[in-house]
Amino acid sequence: MPIRKRERKKMKNGYVYEVYINYYDNGIKNRYSKSGFRTWKDAKNHEAMIYAKLEKKGNVQKKCKKTFDQVYQEFLEIGCGNYQENTVTSTKNIYNTFLHKEIGNKLITTFNYAFLQNYFNSKSKQGLATNKNIKKAINRILDFSVKLGYIETNPINLVSVKGIDTTRNENKVISDNDFQLIIKRLSEKETFKYMTYRIALIIGYYTGLRVSEVLGLEKEDIDFQNNTISVKRKLVYKGLRKQDFYTTQQMKSKKSHAVIPLALPLKQELQKWFRINPYEKIICDENGYYINPNTMGQDIKAITNKEGIHFHFHMLRHTFSTKLVLGNVDIKTTQELMRHSNFNTTMSLYTHINDEHKQEVINEIFSK
């Protein structure tokens, strides 16, 4: 209903009335709300005035007095339904760690270019990757604010973000020798846990799947007769306890759902693993439960650090894409195998890898 009661302890009767109206502006759903009316009649009169404005202009011009904290809470209630679980969890973590205490009490209407640029300038000594994630979180909330009519535009794309770049770009691809050494060290452990880690890395190496996709695979997804793998679910784990992990078919994009080829070396490895692993989950612990990718990463890092190898799971995806590009696989096929939803992503990949390869060739020639 357009008018509803809201608890207000300071009021003599313990409540006030709020006008709450949903409307569409150029096909975009918006919401108008105003609270503080002492009587139902006052709220009804205000409602009539707003409807008159809507009929005349098609939208309502209003001065929003809500803080970033308040809009964030509304975002969690009604605005995050189209985002993946991991994205929502990431937004919550960023908000609780940084945004709530730093800018949560600021009015949403103050979030213009100057305010946001000054905010990120003050964080220039922080990690670049962290700042980029903060920018993404703010972007989601400001986009939501625009839809509700709290602000007219979202200026976040105008803002430049700086910070300390701690990534090691030179090691985004793992060499065959380093990969085989990691596999060898995992094999030497001779426990179910490390055998599981081993098969997870081998799957990532031969498919380029993301870690959440690898950990969500089940035996029914592997078709040994037609040599294919059905990628149709991923593990949801961020912000959850291990016993609460679950899989979802809501993938990163529509292109993420795909049937991809099963490479012969991977087929042989999986056939051997299926005889050892009694569970339907391909990647699981000795009791058949999902494994924590963070724990897996830490355990593998303990091994790679001893060998002096820089490694994280996503490097397997970079390695897979690099092998496709340098193997002269055509762009369309590469896009399908990488399951990129945007062709430009694949084109950027080709440009980046080829430029790096040219640099390596020049350096090799003139270092002799």
Rank of each mutant, 00 (worst) to 15 (best):
K65I: 12
Y95R: 02
F68H: 02
K65E: 14
V88G: 02
L107E: 06
F75N: 00
L76Y: 04
G104M: 06
Q70V: 08
T87I: 10
Q73K: 15
K63T: 13
N93M: 14
T91M: 06
Q70T: 07
T67Y: 03
I78L: 11
I78R: 12
T97M: 11
N93Y: 12
E77H: 11
Q73I: 10
Y113I: 05
I108N: 01
L99C: 04
Q70R: 07
L107C: 06
T110V: 13
N82C: 08
Q73C: 06
N105S: 15
K66G: 04
I94K: 04
N86Q: 14
I103N: 01
E74C: 07
L76S: 00
Y83P: 04
E74M: 11
T87V: 09
T87G: 05
C80K: 05
K63N: 14
E102I: 09
Y83N: 10
L76E: 03
T110Q: 12
C64V: 14
N112E: 11
V88C: 06
I94L: 08
K65W: 05
F68T: 02
I108S: 01
C64W: 07
K92H: 04
T89H: 10
S90V: 03
F98E: 00
F111M: 08
Q61G: 09
Q70H: 08
Y113K: 09
K92I: 13
F111L: 13
K101D: 14
K63L: 14
T67V: 07
G81S: 13
Q61P: 03
G81K: 15
E85S: 13
N86L: 07
I103S: 02
E77N: 12
Y83G: 03
S90P: 02
K101W: 07
I94V: 15
N82H: 14
V71C: 07
Y83L: 15
N86I: 09
Q70P: 02
T109H: 04
N105W: 08
K62R: 15
L76W: 05
H100S: 10
K65P: 00
I94Y: 03
L107I: 10
T97D: 09
L99K: 01
K106H: 14
Q61K: 14
K62V: 12
K63V: 14
F68N: 00
Y95V: 00
T89I: 08
F111E: 01
T97E: 06
D69I: 06
G79F: 05
Y72V: 05
V88D: 01
K66P: 02
Y72R: 08
V88E: 00
F75D: 02
K66C: 07
K101G: 09
Y113D: 06
K66H: 10
T91A: 11
I94F: 05
K92F: 02
T89F: 09
K66I: 08
K62A: 14
G81A: 13
F75V: 03
N86Y: 06
L99V: 03
